[in-house]
C-alpha cells in the first residue's frame, strides 16, 4: 500500500472512531434518550374542564426568604407562622407584627382576644401586641399538632401524631379528647397516614374534621361525638386521591368546603353534603407533586392559598360571570 493510501486509511479509521464516540455520547445523553417505559403517568387526571373553574387568581403576596407552615385570615389580616416566626401581614403585604418563636409554628388561629400558635408539641397564646399570655404542652412525646379550632369557648387541637383531637379551655385546662370512633362503627376513627389533619368551625357553629385516610370530612359535636360525614375517593376531579386527602380545608359562608389536596395539588369547592360544586385552582396552577397549600377564606368568601413551594399567598376570587 502506498504512503498516501495508508494515510487515508488511518484518517478514515480515526473519523470512524470519533463518529462512534459522538454517537455513543449523544445516545447516552439524558436529553436524547427515549421516554421512560415505566413512566407513572397521571396527566389525564390533571385535565380540568374549564367550565368547572369558577375562580381566578387576582393577587399574590410574596413571602420572601421564610419557610411558612400555616396561615389564618382574620378581619382583613393574614396571620402566618412557620420556621421560628409568627407574623401578621396586612392584606396588601405590609407586615404589622413579627413574633419570634423558639420552634417552628405549624398552625395559627386568630380571634378578637388572642392569637393561638400551634407548634409541633406546644400551644402558645399571644395577645395582639405579641405578648405571650399562656402556653402548654400536651402530655405525649409523639404529639404532632396540625390544626386549631374554637367552638363554644373550647379549643380543639388536632394531634396527628396520636390520631386524636384534644380539647382545652383557652387557659390550657384539659377537657378531654376523642379519636373519631363512633358506636355504630360507621367510621373507623381518625386515620392519619401523614401529618395532614385539619379541622374547621363553620358559620353555623359546626365542627368539621378531616379524616384523610378515609377521604372523608366528618362533623362532630363539642363532646366529640360523630354527627355525620361524607367521603369521596377518586382520581377524577369529583373525589380525593392518594393516601390522605384532603390535606387542608376551609369553609365558605354558606357552609360549603374549600379543599386542598396533596399529590395532585388542586383546590376545589364541595357542598356541605359532599357534591363537587366548582374548582378554585387546577393542578396546572401548582408545582408538580407539590405540597398541598393551606387554604383559608375571608368574610367575602375570597379564597387564600398558602403556596409552600413558591412561598406565595395566592388570592382566588370568584369570576364575575359565575
Amino acid at each position: 500500500m502506498s504512503k498516501k493510501g495508508l494515510s487515508i486509511l488511518i484518517v478514515a479509521i480515526i473519523v470512524v472512531i470519533i463518529g462512534i464516540i459522538i454517537i455513543d455520547f449523544i445516545g447516552n445523553n439524558a436529553l436524547n434518550r427515549g421516554g421512560n417505559p415505566y413512566e407513572y403517568n397521571v396527566d389525564e387526571y390533571k385535565e380540568v374542564d374549564p367550565s368547572l373553574i369558577h375562580y381566578k387568581e387576582t393577587k399574590n403576596i410574596a413571602l420572601g426568604d421564610i419557610i411558612p407552615r400555616g396561615m389564618d385570615i382574620f378581619k382583613g389580616d393574614i396571620y402566618i407562622t412557620g420556621e421560628n416566626f409568627l407574623k401578621v401581614i396586612g392584606i396588601h403585604g405590609v407586615q404589622k407584627l413579627n413574633i419570634s418563636l423558639e420552634e417552628s409554628g405549624i398552625c395559627v388561629l386568630a380571634r378578637d382576644e388572642f392569637i393561638i400558635a400551634g407548634l409541633e408539641q406546644e400551644v402558645l397564646i399571644f395577645d395582639h401586641m405579641g405578648k405571650l399570655i399562656n402556653s402548654w404542652k400536651p402530655d405525649t412525646e409523639t404529639t404532632y399538632i396540625t390544626s386549631l379550632a374554637i367552638l363554644n369557648n373550647i379549643l380543639f387541637v388536632a394531634d396527628a401524631g396520636n390520631r386524636r383531637v384534644l380539647k382545652y379551655t383557652t387557659e390550657g385546662n384539659y377537657l378531654g379528647e376523642f379519636e373519631g370512633k363512633s358506636e355504630s362503627d360507621d367510621q373507623h376513627g381518625f386515620i392519619i397516614p401523614s401529618p395532614h389533619f385539619d379541622m374547621v368551625v363553620n358559620e353555623f357553629d359546626e365542627l368539621w374534621i378531616v379524616n384523610p385516610g378515609k377521604h372523608a370530612i366528618e362533623n362532630y359535636n363539642e363532646k366529640g361525638e360523630l354527627r355525620g360525614f361524607w367521603a369521596s375517593s377518586s382520581m377524577n376531579i369529583e373525589g380525593f386521591t392518594g393516601c390522605c386527602n384532603p390535606a387542608e380545608i376551609a369553609v365558605l359562608s354558606n357552609g360549603s368546603f374549600v379543599t386542598s389536596e396533596k399529590g395532585m395539588v388542586r383546590i376545589k369547592i364541595y357542598s356541605q353534603s359532599g357534591e363537587l360544586e366548582s374548582v378554585v385552582a387546577a393542578p396546572e396552577k401548582f408545582q408538580e407533586e407539590g405540597t398541598a397549600p393551606d387554604v383559608k377564606v375571608d368574610e367575602n368568601d375570597v379564597v387564600y392559598a398558602l403556596d409552600f413551594d413558591r412561598k406565595l399567598i395566592r388570592v382566588f376570587e370568584k369570576k364575575l360571570s359565575e
Binding site: 407513572y40 397516614p193 401523614s194 385516610g213 382520581m235 386521591t241 393516601c243
Partner: peptide
C-alpha cells in the same frame, strides 16, 4: 402509612382497592 389506598401499589384510577392484576401498578 400502611394505607388501604396505596399510591405505590394501585395504579391511577384502579377499579377497586383489591389485589387483582388489573389494579396493580
Amino acid at each position: 402509612g400502611y394505607c388501604d389506598l396505596c399510591g405505590g401499589y394501585f395504579k391511577p384510577g384502579a377499579n377497586k382497592l383489591e389485589t387483582g392484576a388489573e389494579n396493580q401498578l
